[in-house]
Design a protein around this nucleic acid. Structure first.
Lengths: 193, 193
DNA sequence: TAAATTAAACAGAACGGTCTAATTATTTTA
DNA sequence: TAAAATAATTAGACCGTTCTGTTTAATTTA
């Protein structure tokens, strides 16, 4: 028999709580309460709140990277349509909880990415990983003359990435997906060859 | 002789501090210290931290709205070039402080816009004001056949707005303007007629 | 002098984090 | 294999600090 608690479960609770409430608005006690773990155990697993947040980001970043790779590997549509379908799915996921969270990594970036090097570079690292996945799909689309060759795959990936987070952030105050849907239409009209 | 302190000065300090540090990471004491105002005076002027933050957003939102209107009124370039020049200037402003703050209203939106109705709707209100200013310039560009008519002025405004905040947020962790510059190039290539 | 403002002490709650003790799992020894 | 020793985990009381906000009194202004 293993021990009662494991890091992964606690990290998943952290993901949920941080995503919805931000970093500085969340106390360790809230994490403890929602995961049922005692404080002593928490500090046995994690050095500090900062260390915990970093590991939360890391786990989600890696999980999401795998998830994205799988999605594009399994996608039978054309590269351009796969990308569009990917963002469409992301939007649907965010609609499910009424845009109450957005993307943890983006939220953390905006809230503390500039002040906190640990969190900032962890977030950036995973962004880069995701962007490379996107860029590889963009490149396939370019090779099929489906996507514009006026810009590099990474440039186009960064463009989509930023645009998506821009409209996703916008939902935090509009609380509807109208301009997210229009963004999707516009972007994929713009980038096609 | 008036009194020693006035609301506007305190709000300006709040703007600075909140923009760089976020909302929950800032205590009232920090505002008091940096503005030199005593605590008693603060709670004489403002009901609460939340009320203060709302007024900070309001003042900046209105100031920025005027500033944008003036910019576009004074701009002698074509509508499309005025818009491009506007975003270029915004980027330069953010480069000056090494992307340490970004946009207060966007930061607040992302951090607490979804949890806090007061802040969220205040932020949204000013976003809408700015978007209308942008949209009016877009419309002029469309009338001059300079900007695509495939989308409405407001849709294009929302698109630029979101994209800009997306790349601006990205600088929080990349700490350079590379993809911001590319975004500008791409966006204005895409939206032209 | 009456009202507004300043000043600082004061709450009570929440914060991140530490500490000691008890319990459980694992490894070592007999 | 059974007992003993060690290591890891669990438990939560507790620490000093900081948080937002209140209160009371002194001072300044109109």
């Amino acid at each position: 028999m293993g021990y009662k608690y494991n890091k992964e479960d606690i990290l998943n609770v952290g993901y949920d709580v941080f995503r919805r409430n931000g970093y500085h608005n969340v106390g360790i006690n809230q994490i403890l309460k929602e995961s049922g773990i005692p404080k002593g155990s928490f500090y046995n697993f994690f050095e500090s709140k900062e260390d915990f947040a970093q590991q939360v980001i890391r786990q989600y970043g890696e999980t999401n990277n795998c998830w994205m790779k799988d999605f594009f590997e399994d996608c039978t549509l054309s590269p351009l349509e796969c990308l569009k379908s990917f963002y469409s799915m992301m939007m649907n996921l965010n609609e499910e909880d009424e845009y109450s969270g957005g993307c943890l990594v983006n939220n953390m970036s905006v809230e503390i990415g500039r002040q906190n090097d640990i969190i900032g570079s962890e977030a950036n690292h995973h962004f880069i990983g995701w962007l490379n996945v996107l860029a590889s799909v963009v490149e396939k689309g370019q090779n099929l003359n489906e996507i514009t060759k006026d810009f590099s795959p990474l440039e186009l990936a960064e463009y989509m990435h930023a645009g998506f987070y821009g409209v996703l952030s916008r939902t935090k105050v509009t609380r509807n997906r109208v301009y997210m849907d229009i963004w999707l239409e516009m972007t994929f009209k713009f980038i096609q060859a």
